[in-house]
Structures are given as C-alpha cells and as structure tokens.
Design a protein around this nucleic acid. Sequence first.
RNA 1: GCCGACGUAGCACAGCGGUAGUGCAACCGAUUCGUAAUCGGUAGGUCGCGAGUUCGAUUCUCGCCGUCGGCACCA
Length: 650
Amino acid sequence: MPVITLPDGSTRPFDGAVTGTTVAASIGPGLAKAALAMEVDGRLMDLSAEIGTDAKLRFITRRDPEALEMIRHDCAHVLAEAVQELFPGTQVTIGPSIENGFYYDFHRNEPFTPEDFPAIEAKMREIIARGAAFQRRVVSRAEAVDVFVKKGERFKVELIRDLPADQVITLYSQGEWTDLCRGPHMRTTADIGPAFKLQKVAGAYWRGKPENPVLSRIYGTAWRDQKELDAYLTMLEEAEKRDHRKIGREMHLFHLQEEATGSVFWHPKGWKLYRTVEDYMRRRLDAADYEEVKTPQLVDRRLWEASGHWEKFRHAMFLAKVEDKDEADRTYALKPMNCPCHVQIFNQGIRSYRDLPMRMAEFGACHRFEPSGALHGIMRVRAFTQDDAHIFCEEHQIAAETVRFVDLLSAIYRDLGFTDFRVKFSDRPEVRAGEDAVWDRAEGALKEACVTAGVEYELNPGEGAFYGPKLEFVLRDAIGRDWQCGTLQVDFVLPERLDATYVAEDGTRKRPVMLHRAILGSFERFLGILIEQHAGRFPLWLAPVQVVVATIVDDATPFAQQAAAALRAAGLRVETDLRNEKINRKVVDHIEQRVPVLAVVGRREAEEGKLVLRRLPGREQEVLPLAEAVALLRREGMAPDLSSAPVAAE
RNA sequence: GCCGACGUAGCACAGCGGUAGUGCAACCGAUUCGUAAUCGGUAGGUCGCGAGUUCGAUUCUCGCCGUCGGCACCA
C-alpha cells in the first residue's frame, strides 16, 4: 500500500503499485495533462513507471528545468528516427541533450550537410505529430545485443558490450523506432512541441578518440515554445555582433593574415588597448610584490631537454637553426613557456628561505605550434604573451600564496568587468609525478585556500598537470564558449629537474615549490574576451580612443585643436574629427567606432571656450568649460587602481 | 591534425564556361550645415595560390594555403 507524499507535504495512499499517470489523474485533470515526467525520491522517471512503495513524488511539467532537458533529449531521438527513415543505412550512436540543445552522432559514408536539414526537420515534425508514446522496455544484455546486431547497428552493440555488468539495460521505442537509452522520456513525441531547429553539422570522432571512425554530428536546439526559441536565436545573432574578430576589424584593433598564421598584427588602436591593460597589470603586480623579469626568446634545446619539454612537447615547439657552419648542429627553440627560464634566474646565486616566497613575473612572449584546427581569432593563437609569474616558495606557503593570488585575480577581473567567472579545481591525474602524500598536502592547501578566499570551485577530477594540482579560472565568450584564462598550478617536479634549491631554516638544502600562475592567461585571449564582454564599448579607461573632438563648422577648428591638446595633456587618448561633414554624420560614425565620449565644438563653444560632451551611444549632452571638461574626463578615464589615489592639482 | 562549409575591391555582399558588378569606405569637387548617414563626380579587383579539363576558367576537377563551425588538442 504505497503512500505518495507530494511536494506540498500532502499524502495519498494507494491500494497497490501505481503509475505517475494514475497519481496525476487522481489529483486533477489539469495536472494529468501537464505532467510530463516525475521525480520519485529524487530520481527522474517516466510518468508511466510504477511506484510500489512509499515515496516522495514531484511531477515535472513544462515549466521545470528538467522538462527542457527532456524536450531536448526526446528531440534527439526524433532526429535519429527521422534520419534513419530518410537515409536508410545510417547507423545511430549517441544523442544527448546539451546546453541549449542536443546533438546526435550518426555513422554514414556520406556526411550530412545543412542542405539536408529542411527534409529532416519536416520529417521530425511529422514524427512529433504522430505523437507515439515513448515505451520503456528492460532487456537482458543478450537480448539487447541481439536487437542491434539484427539491425546492423554496430556502434550500439559496442556500447552495450561496454556497459557495466550491473547496469539495467533499457530500450525506448517511439512507435516502430527503438533506441538503446537510459531514459527517462516524456510521454509521447508530441510533448516535444514545435520549438526546435537543426543548426549545424560537424565531424566528431566515435567516442572522442581520433583513431576511431569520424561520425557526422547534427546539432540542434529545442525549447519549450516558439517564443523561447526565437529569443534564443535572437540572442545568438546578438552574440555574433560581439564577435571579437568582427569588432577587431571594425575598430581597427588588429588583423591576421596567412603569412603569419596564428600571430596577431596589432594596429595602433589595438595596441593602445593592449598597452593600457599591460600597464595596469604591471602596476598591479608591482603592488603585489612581484618582481618583473625578461627572459630569452630563443633557447638552446639543452635547456628544454633538461626541463622535460623536449621529450613531451617538442611537437608543439618552433625550432630554429642557423646556417653558420660552426653553429649548424645547435638547435634552438622559441620558448613555449617561461618557467625554465625563470628557474635559471632563481638558480643564479644561493637562495635562502628568507628570500621566499619569490614572485617572479614576466610578460613572456611564447610560441606554440597549435594544431591548425585549434586556431580561433586571437583567442587561440601560436604566438602570445602570457602575464606569467612563478612563485618560488616553501610547501607550507602554498595556501597563503594561493589566497593572495585569488584575491589579486578577483580584484583584477572585477576592474576589467568580469564579476562572473568559474573556477575549476583539477586534482591528481592517473599518470603523475610525486608521492601521494605530497599530492594530499598540495590539493589540501589549494582547497583550503579557495575556502579562505571565498571562491567556489567545481571539481575537475583527474585533470591536474602531471606535476601538480591546478586551479583554472574560466571566462565565457559572447558565443557561450568557455576559455581558460587564469590558472594556478602547483609544481613539485620542475624545481627538481632543473635543480632549484634554497637553504632552509635548518641549514639544509631544499627544493622550493613552484606555483605557475597567470591571471589574464594570454593577452591575446584575454583581450579577445574583453572585446566580446564589452562588445567593443569599453569603459573610458580602457577605450583605445577615449574622446573625439568634433567640429560643427570650420570656424571651430582652432578651438577644437586647442581642446584636444588640453585633453591629451591630461593623459587622455583623443582624436579630432575636423571633417567637412554634418555633425549628424560625425555622431553616427563615432557611435559605430564605439568611441565613449564625443566632445562637440560649434561656433558658440569656440567663442565661449566650452565643450558639449555626449556619452556615446547615449543622447544626453552636457556643456562644460574646457578646464572642467578636462578635469572631469581625466578623473573618469583613470584606471580603477589609480582612481582612489588623490588627483594631483591641475 | 580530422569532418564539413567557405575564400570575388578596405568592409559587406551579388554574379557566372565568353577576361567582373552593387552598397558603404577611399579620392576630387560643391556645401559650413547644432547632435543617429549632404549632394555630385572619380578611381579601385592576376575573383586565395598552383595545376588540370576546355577554343576559352573567377565559374568545372584536383592539390595546397587560409578562414569559419564542430571534433581532437590546449604543457
């Protein structure tokens, strides 16, 4: 006699095992209609599942987040059925729901193209209209194998064979079509509704392994209703407008060209932005007791052999040789990272525990031969500059240094407009160097430091570096892709390999621990994200051109030039627009160029020595005497780490 | 690197087996016009690179390079 407890605390007894459908019907016709699935004692289940014992039950209706996931998962099934109806011989593999949608991987000699979408979507609508019920069937392993062997579905057979022994194997049918699936599903295909759209095709390796066959993946998106779908598609269009590659071109920040694949040509305006961020970072690091260094670009392979990079990462290193016959057998490599060079500096002279922690920073230009398919605008390049630093410290200092680092990183991200970032904690991988006891202490120190610093992290099991655990600080681009920017990695191995030592308090020689850490990660990537974050409309202190002084008539030109000079003298980045154009046109152009402040000078202002300030793209205007305008903009345009300092007298 | 799509003027795009067009930008001229595009004129392209098919290739085929979307990679 099961007693069902509902979320409001009320209970309902039943005579025997009941399905969710029955319970819903017993509560009311509205719920019976709305319930798509249910959660029984915390487990999501089909509405048609039987409940035989006392249980807590919650119905899932269209409004619940779980429903959205089910709509997408169900939609993936419908996609697979549609594809198999239209393209006989296509084999199915897997098709999960993902953020904002779903995909399904197919095996077919001829990959799908977007031209196939209209037919597939039409077929999907047909299947949804049929409204076949999702029917769950528990089968034995042998039976499951048999079903898919008969259908010639070798990928499914492989999946079944690899399922854990105690796994209950279930098949879900929607009408004639059956898939291996864990479930749960909604009641019928009709519950999916009309709000879905196929988006793109892509190649994907079977089970993610490059040695496996390439499958043809179809991505789609699905929502509760048309309104949500439209909103999502509009959001995607808006996101495209923020693309750093597009904005970089429009604002004349940088360009890329094939003679230097993966390297950025920074234009004057882009370089202003770069330098503004670099100057800011340098001040921040100085204030945080880092010491800046600069190390060689080209380093003999012997150092890379010693550090271990030669063995592990040679494939990603650019090599250089010279023709000189005496030098001909020497091989140099462009540094892919800075740490071995920093250890060389550490190793000059004898270090004492009193010197630690030593925080050695470098805006280090690195080159890595990234796979061609990985390149992406300025976010993933082959030549980049890290805001790198290595903290040489004693093991007991790891936690305190981590807290310091996280505090610094948070302050910097806040200043640059990022209050919302994710932290991933990657712990020991299977293949690793160092004893477990050391890993225990390092991981413990990092976790503790996160708690102290008030940072919430998600665990990323087994993803640590082979030399130590790490924290990754992840920012998201306009299109919703995640990028690792900041990182903190604990390293016990490199000091060993490169023989770094210090004299400890007890007079013995010890190995320092190295903390590899970066906040921006690479300037290139970070600036790409910064551009997208602000859609190119930077806060005044970051804007490459902060003020444009624009004239209305030629008579105003001398004063405009005088005003621009005064603004420049106050440290502002200023341009003049003296063109023979109407002010309307100038406003439009500078809005397009995402200039934050337009200072308009007409005949009146020229006579009175005033500026009309307009914050673009806004419409409000304020008229100020030149000196006041300069003081105001100067104050506003100051970097956040400077603006708290008292402003020097004019 | 793998799968697919794409590569035409500075930018956005059109076109096509018969040696290229539109808009904006650029340049020249007129206009001096008070806050979301003034008017007129001129110039600009080995149609990514290389090879093949063809009387003839920007157009069709192949190779390479690059870009884009994924996958894989990301010390």
